[in-house]
Design a protein around this nucleic acid. Structure first.
Lengths: 283, 283
DNA sequence: CCCCTTGATACCGGTGCGGTATCAGGCCTG
DNA sequence: CAGGCCTGATACCGCACCGGTATCAAGGGG
């Protein structure tokens, strides 16, 4: 009765994302007719209409939208089986730690150095990723553990160990009037006409409204900051963001930022215990 | 190159659990030779030895043990796709709440009554389960939300909303000397020769050592308590455990027990918001 | 020593997946 | 209004692969 195959899930996800059988089939490198048939079989087996075949296109039903979200999770879980099993089979299993490019290197270096002193230490590969990409890498088994920042990163579903908590600073061009201040408030930095705060895409890919430039990657943002075109509020320890021609001014009422080690709830590699233990005992 | 099918995962889990190709094949309702071949193909595709075929039996390699744990999670995720999709397609989607049999009915009733008053309320089915069974039901999509007790239940990977916090009481036969006490300590109840505390199985199915009787279900325990053969420390509100011929004595230094609403991190049904909202605003 | 039990190998047949060819309906365009 | 063409659905076919039966190879025990 039940027992879907991952092939069916992959096919459905392709159609649900493309909302077009032809393009989905192309993406899957199969012909369109077998794909149509497979989706029909899937709907028949579930007893659920997943797609509304309107003239000129395909739309998701509410059940289809649920299935899309769940299917993505399940496919990630299947990928994780392969990745984690392969990793566990390596001669020296090691750990993969992922972090945003541009996060505080010093803290990470201190953690890794301290961990390397342990007798049970294993190799730790560091995998840099885009902003917010850590969750996905943990979920599909590409990484074992991540360095994340609360409240910037979403922590749901992850177990965590706190590394440090710190205030935030505003990064201002040295020539700007604000650079002479010794302290700032969020209200002051949120409304600087000639230095609007950059806007990041939301989860659905759209941008919130506002005057600031739209950015998608750390390097885009770095360029704008270096050009003196935008204002940045970041944890005080993010030295990678601080150039000689800029000034870091504490923002006294910005929320504290906590740097944490995070890993998926559930099964965890044995070697992770040592790293977490090191993290919790880091001065 | 990669892209496992759930069939392969099911086959591997069967063999890894039975540690015997013949029995695993029987469980899967197929013959033994295709199963041997499928596992060999799996190992070849992964490039990993999962099983050590010793004469007289099969043993898991470390990579195989990792794969078993990950495969169970992945298969649960695939089951969850089916269950949640079917549930989302129902005419009136509703919610499934799971709780241990014997937990405080009153609180749950108050919660459900308050929720039913909301204009956006949907039907809530209550699914009773064994001790600790809530996690599995949430993971494989059989339930949307669970009533759990911290620190009794493991909460990793779940999002939660606190319902209430309370002290614990010891349930003692009325004729027992301890029944005349107005308060007790953990030290006092942990070593009562004629009323040893019952032992629950650990996650691997074995029992911790100790003098108390071994129990596996709530009803076994209930019988022992009713017979006056064991002593019980439970949250004060668990009225289902309190008979006229027993006395509830507060245990002053027992850890506080928090009753929480818990649901899997990740996608959640729209209707869940209302229930969580009701829970957080419950007096 | 023989037999039984273990998992692996050999071979064969049927199911079902994926391919090509084609159809059915709606929208544009000329 | 007719003809393209775009959509997804249907028809049919071949082959890969899954699963079945029969058998083998290797130990361990009575």
């Amino acid at each position: 009765m039940d027992g879907l195959e991952t092939r069916e899930l992959r096919y459905f996800v392709a159609v649900a994302e493309e909302l077009h059988f032809g393009r989905a089939a192309e993406r899957l490198a199969i012909a369109q007719p077998p794909l149509s048939r497979a989706i029909q079989q899937l709907e028949r087996r579930l007893g659920v209409t997943l797609l509304e075949r309107d003239r000129r296109g395909v739309a998701l039903t509410p059940a289809g939208a649920t299935m899309l979200a769940e299917a993505r999770l399940a496919l990630d879980a299947v990928d994780a089986v392969v990745r984690r099993t392969r990793r566990a089979a390596a001669p020296t299993p090691g750990l993969v730690l992922t972090t945003k490019a541009g996060a505080s290197h010093e803290l990470l270096k201190r953690l890794l150095d301290a961990y390397a002193q342990r007798p049970d230490a294993v190799d730790v590969d560091v995998l840099l990723c885009e902003v917010g990409g850590q969750r996905g890498l943990l979920r599909d088994g590409s990484a074992d553990v991540a360095l994340v920042h609360s409240p910037y990163d979403v922590l749901t579903g992850l177990e965590t160990a706190t590394l440090q908590t710190e205030g935030q600073v505003a990064i201002v061009p040295g020539a700007h009037p604000l650079a002479r201040r010794t302290r700032l408030t969020l209200a002051e930095v949120s409304d600087v006409p000639d230095l609007p705060i950059a806007r990041w895409p939301r989860h659905d890919g759209t941008y919130p409204p506002g005057p600031g430039p739209e950015v998608r990657t750390q390097s885009q943002l770095a360029q704008l900051v270096a050009l003196g075109r935008t204002l940045l509020v970041i944890p005080g320890s993010s030295r990678a963001w601080q150039w000689p021609e800029h000034v870091a001014v504490p923002v006294v009422d910005a929320p504290e930022v906590t740097t944490l080690l995070a890993w998926p709830a559930g099964v965890r590699p044995a070697a992770l215990e040592g790293l977490v233990d090191t993290a919790t005992h880091l001065a």
